[in-house]
Design a protein around this nucleic acid. Structure first.
Length: 436
DNA sequence: ATCTGCGGGTTGG
DNA sequence: CCAACCCGCAGAT
């Protein structure tokens, strides 16, 4: 707050390097957790920040041995795309999250595209001098220092939450498969089910926007009353939508899914109460500190894209995953915060919202909704990198990243070769403080 | 079944 | 010496 301090503070915040013997300890202001750090970013988080404690990132980061127990190093695995570059409805592409574990990744690559059944291709990250982008985490004193090296040269994969949500969905589908057969069995639906069962990958490519609209304004409901029920329905509608293009009629299926299970993980953050005003309160958390973000948000809202949904997710408590992150909303200035938010957990992605009580805080354990988005996605205004999932909305061709064949930005030169690589581990969660 | 972190070990610059 | 990576182990989900 005081200008003077600010300057010196700023310097401290930027002049350090993760390898320095001593890292600044006079940090007055810690950063809000960044879900999609990119481009040589540096952040100083509070040691209380759960997301930081878990070394989370929405990029698929695997653990890398740097033979330094004090500094945790992780490298990016890139993103898994359809080898046939298929597009779901509306031009959406599929960007799956590479499994972190080598074995799981190999297995994943043997699976087929959830949409066209084509082969899956791993686009490796080469954003750091041809090597994967690396992230470093170091716990020191009351802070957790984060440093990123390199700039991701591929689309964002679905987040961990989204991937979990997918799995959950799949499970739900399996569970209710018998029923579903009777359900509206549109061709689409059927095929999806089949895929799901045989492939294990996401079943669908649903359209996020259509399917996920939150009912109404989000603001009020963030916490609303029976969010769970609602969300469940929403969730279901997703899948259904995907199949029929409809929207909410999954509710009827809901009952078949064993809501109990779905909700297990989905407790809404009951303790938190957010008022609609929270959404735009940048100051409180710094969330919307970025004017552009706000602008974008506004724009979306105007467009009727339910920005909330996209950005903040309203209340969708989608049961599928545990959402746990509380990312701060404003990410790199380059990322509009809504990038992916569409289906993803709102929280997860952007951090924007009301559901998060304290942006740097830990929501971590809350669970949430789902994010299907990843899978396919299409957020309109992002830059390629920003969109994790899929990206393209036909209607918003601007930044699509289509991986079209070889002309794409990402050339899969390695075509399937990449598939073979793997390593294991990485990304986020857990490690509550290993690094000393 | 996976994720995540650790650490031994190899390879190439 | 450093960086990238492979591999297996162990604890936690």
């Amino acid at each position: 707050m005081e200008p003077d301090d600010f300057d010196s503070e700023d310097k401290d915040m930027l002049s350090w390097d993760i390898n320095d013997m001593k890292l600044p300890q006079n940090v007055k202001k810690t950063d809000l957790f960044q879900e999609w750090p990119d481009s040589y970013a540096k952040h100083i988080y509070s040691s209380e920040d759960k997301n930081a404690q878990r070394h989370l990132s929405s990029w698929a980061m695997r653990n890398t041995n740097n033979h330094n127990s004090r500094i945790l190093k992780k490298s990016c695995l890139g993103v898994v795309v359809c080898g046939h570059d298929c597009s779901a409805e509306e031009g959406r592409k599929i960007y799956l999250r590479p499994a972190i574990c080598d074995k799981a990744r190999q297995k994943q690559q043997r699976k087929r595209c959830p949409h066209c059944d084509g082969p899956l291709k791993l686009i490796p990250c080469r954003g750091h001098g041809g090597f994967p982008v690396t992230n470093f985490w170091r716990h020191d004193g009351r802070f957790i220092f984060f440093q990123s090296k390199g700039e991701h040269d591929h689309p964002k994969p679905e987040t961990k939450l989204e991937a979990e949500a997918r799995r959950a969905m799949k499970k739900a589908h399996m569970t209710s498969s018998s029923i579903s057969l009777n359900l509206k069995g549109s061709p689409r639906t059927k095929s999806l089910l089949g895929e799901t069962q045989s492939q294990g990958s996401l079943p669908l490519t649903w359209s996020f926007q259509e399917g996920v609209q939150l009912p109404g304004s989000y603001s009020g409901h963030l916490i609303a009353n029976s969010p769970q029920q609602k969300s469940l329905n929403d969730c279901l509608s997703f899948s259904k939508t995907y199949g029929s293009g409809g929207t909410t009629d999954l509710a009827d299926q809901t009952s078949t899914l064993d809501p109990t299970k779905l909700y297990e993980k989905c407790k809404l953050p009951s303790s938190r109460t957010y008022s609609s005003g929270d959404l735009l309160q940048p100051s409180a958390s710094g969330v919307y500190s970025d004017y552009n973000d706000l602008q974008t948000w506004t724009k979306n809202a105007a467009l009727g894209k339910n920005s909330l949904n996209e950005n903040c997710y309203p209340n969708y408590p989608f049961p599928l995953t545990s959402w746990a992150y509380n990312f701060s909303p404003s990410q790199n200035s380059s990322e509009p915060f809504f990038q992916q938010i569409p289906l993803e957990s709102p929280a997860a992605k952007t951090g924007c919202h009301p559901l998060w009580p304290n942006p740097g805080g830990n929501l971590y354990e809350e669970k949430v909704h789902v994010d299907f988005n990843n899978y396919i996605q299409s957020p309109p205004y992002h830059s390629p990198q920003e969109d994790p999932f899929l990206l393209t909305y036909a209607s918003h061709p601007h930044q699509q990243y289509s991986l079209t064949g070889k002309s794409n930005k990402w050339d899969f030169d390695e075509d399937m070769t990449c598939v073979g690589l793997d390593h294991c581990n990485n990304e986020m969660l857990l490690n509550l403080c290993p690094l000393r």
